[in-house]
């Protein structure tokens, strides 16, 4: 068996009196691993500790054999795509990537070349010279991923890379992340949507309220989760038409309209629903602007799981 890429022992993280991570111990094998949990589960804190942005309150962390805290060599071997958009909005995507590569020690020409390659990889060439402030959510996600992979990192940390993207971009990003795995890179990708993680890997780590709930093969917990109804929020231009079409599908048990352009769909078969949605949208020729699974939904699933 190969050495674990991440090894964590008795990891604790506190923000004042709030416990973000509580005695987490785990190892992850090479390849793609999924980090799953609702908001506030500790996923972002965990990732930030692994990339070296945060120092844990207690415990030991080893990533690719090294302690990540204040370790510039570790920074060159790993790439991080943060959840939140934090960019110098006045910069163009190309300029941002070129600077990031130069700050990682590349020569000027080499950095320009690497930036062009990364932009090509995430299909952002057309918008490369526009200020980042004008980018859409999907473009910003792709730029963050480009930044994480541009320096040929061996290990990628992708924090909620699919959040807020439309189904088409989502499919593209899922394929992109899979391609990183095929290239031999290891990836730790976080999400609060099981379906997204499942599309990427079978190896998952489940967090809930700062504790490690489960770690291993997704199929073992999948059947448990399937029994719980899922809630999916869809933002679209033709909410009523899409809702009518979705209701004809057996996987959908209930539809409601919290806002004019938003549908809240309750389903007991999320796989079928996620597979059916792009087809229905295509048939109706309506655009799906955003797809998300409300956190309270996953929170309920986790409560259900932890109570079992």
């Amino acid at each position: 068996m190969s050495d674990p890429i991440i090894a964590v022992e008795h990891l604790n993280m506190w923000y004042g009196r709030v416990t973000a991570l509580n005695d987490v111990s785990l190892t992850t094998p090479p390849g793609i691993s999924g980090l799953l949990g609702p908001n506030g589960a500790g996923k972002t804190s965990f990732m930030r500790i692994l990339v070296g942005l945060m120092r844990p309150s207690g415990g030991a962390v080893t990533v690719l054999g090294d302690d990540p805290w204040n370790n510039t060599a570790h920074n060159l071997r790993t790439g991080y795509c943060p959840e939140h958009d934090g960019f110098h909005e006045w910069m163009s995507g190309r300029e941002f990537l070129t600077w990031m590569l130069r700050l990682r020690g590349r020569m000027r020409e080499d950095a320009r070349h690497g930036a062009a390659e990364a932009l090509d990889r995430v299909r952002l060439q057309d918008a490369a010279d526009r200020p980042i402030g004008t980018y859409s959510r999907g473009m910003r996600q792709r730029l963050k991923i480009a930044q994480a992979v541009s320096h040929d990192a061996r290990l990628l940390f992708l924090d909620e890379p699919l959040t807020g993207t439309d189904p088409l971009v989502r499919l593209e990003l899922i394929e992109l992340i899979r391609s990183f795995g095929r290239e031999g890179r290891s990836v730790l990708v976080s999400s609060h949507v099981l379906h997204e993680i499942e599309a990427l890997t079978t190896n998952i780590v489940l967090f809930h309220r700062g504790r490690l709930v489960a770690c291993g093969d997704v199929h073992e917990i999948r059947s448990l989760i399937d029994r719980h109804p899922h809630l999916v929020s869809v933002r679209t231009t033709r909410a009523r038409d899409l809702a009518a079409a979705l209701l004809r599908d057996e996987s959908v048990s209930e539809v409601s309209f919290p806002r004019e352009s938003e549908i809240l769909v309750r389903t007991r078969r999320p796989d079928d629903f996620y597979a059916r949605l792009p087809k229905v949208a295509l048939e109706l020729e309506c655009s799906v602007e955003e797809l998300s699974s409300p956190d309270d939904n996953l929170e309920a699933v986790f409560r259900y799981l932890t109570e079992k």
Binding site: L53, N70, P82, F87
Partner: peptide, 13 residues
């Protein structure tokens, strides 16, 4: 705003 995070993950201490 999150931009410092990128700077702290480079080859510069």
């Amino acid at each position: 705003d999150g931009t410092a995070g990128y700077l702290f993950l480079t080859a510069c201490p």
